[in-house]
Design a protein around this nucleic acid. Structure first.
Lengths: 216, 216
DNA sequence: CCATATTTTTAGACTTATCTAAATTTTTTA
DNA sequence: TAAAAAATTTAGATAAGTCTAAAAATATGG
């Protein structure tokens, strides 16, 4: 098996090398709160184990073996987040750190039973897709609120920023996953947006509109 | 916080120094599958941190601070075992290794919510008491089957041997926690015992009788 | 009660993951 | 396109936890 640390590197590389690109040393260092020199050391080790494709100075991508591990970590992370919110009544902004620990519990049996216990959910509390036991998943087709025009409608289905401060803000303004909203107004001056959900109108900044994702 | 490894040492010392005694270096090494020399190194470190009382060659006991940590690990271990059996349908002989990992998840909030989610159970699937959030617990008053006389009755309430082979044996012979049994016969030759549960009579060896615990 | 056996500790070495500082490579830009 | 800036890698150190082999302390038993 792999260490806790190796798993974190693979996960960071997976996220950093999303949609066809490659992850850079600095990017990985930032994601893991470590130094570039430490990352270089670990990249050599992971390449040795054939979990990543690595050539000096060129950034890295996951091999199929590395991707399989990364997806199993992500599956565990998201299933545990779902469990924490749906079964243990955690708030969606409180689950990240706990799930960061739980994702490293190795038992596959445990995760698969947990998955069944919860009825095989397809999305976690933040709208991110949960890979199934084979590592397959389907992401929602999402657009940021900032990409919509006046009178367009949609359902809040994801976030781009997973920080607890952003999630708490959304909670307070009731702009949570599953809410149906309509773009009421767009202020061309600062690109802020007024969204309507039922009777309630909420004025959100351009930044918030950028980080709030809608399924059309 | 403490490392995973330190927590395992504290737990081993807790178990090794049960009922007033002290734990020896070799005993700890055996429990943790490591070497005596490694144990000595770690004992120095734990003494430095004031988690154990240690004088060279004299064995060790936990300080109040060390005991508090050990009990929190044991609480987590037993609560997770309960969860695995009661919610995820694991068998009682399958949960130990998974719980060994889960017990190191640090969030106190998580454990306390898990405790509530399950209705604050007092005993784990093997009959061991689960410490409450203050670390308090009450063990069953237990006697091994080998300590009973013919015609005495009691309820199976614990095991001394937690190995999966023993638990599987009990499962197969239906001698599981909660079963009411009566001593039907004792063979003085080999100290084996015939126990009666309902209509069923089961012949068990002295060794099994020693490891099966009864509440009177 | 002393010699032997057992237990425990010390000494020195290794591995993993990390760091800082310096060197090298790549990228940017003037 | 060459100089400066940024990114990355190398070199050398450190800390945690482990090991083996040898030394020291304690326990045991004739």
């Amino acid at each position: 098996m792999n260490t806790f640390t190796e798993e974190n590197y693979l996960k960071a590389i997976y996220h950093g090398a999303a949609n066809g690109g490659s992850a850079s040393t600095n990017e990985i260092a930032a994601a893991l709160n470590t130094k570039a020199a430490s990352v270089t050391d670990m990249l050599k080790k992971l390449a040795e184990k054939k979990l990543i494709n690595y050539t000096k100075y060129q950034g890295v991508t996951l091999t199929p073996a590395g991707q399989k591990i990364a997806l199993s970590i992500i599956r565990k992370h998201r299933l545990w987040e779902y469990f924490l919110v749906e079964k243990l009544n955690f708030k969606w902004d409180e689950v990240h750190d706990v799930a960061e620990e739980l994702e490293h519990i190795s038992s596959k049996e445990l995760v698969d039973r947990l998955d069944d216990f919860m009825g095989n959910p397809k999305y976690d509390p933040h709208g991110d897709p949960i890979p199934n036991r084979k590592g397959e998943f389907k992401a929602h087709e999402l657009k940021p609120v900032s990409g919509l025009s006046v009178n367009e409608e949609g359902v809040i289905s994801g976030v781009r920023d997973h920080s607890s401060s952003f999630l708490q803000y959304l909670e307070k303004t009731q702009l949570t996953i599953g809410k149906k909203i309509k773009i009421a107004e767009i202020h061309t001056y600062d690109h802020s947006v007024i969204v309507q959900s039922g009777d309630k109108r909420t004025h959100i900044s351009r930044e918030v509109a950028n980080n709030l994702l809608i399924a059309l």
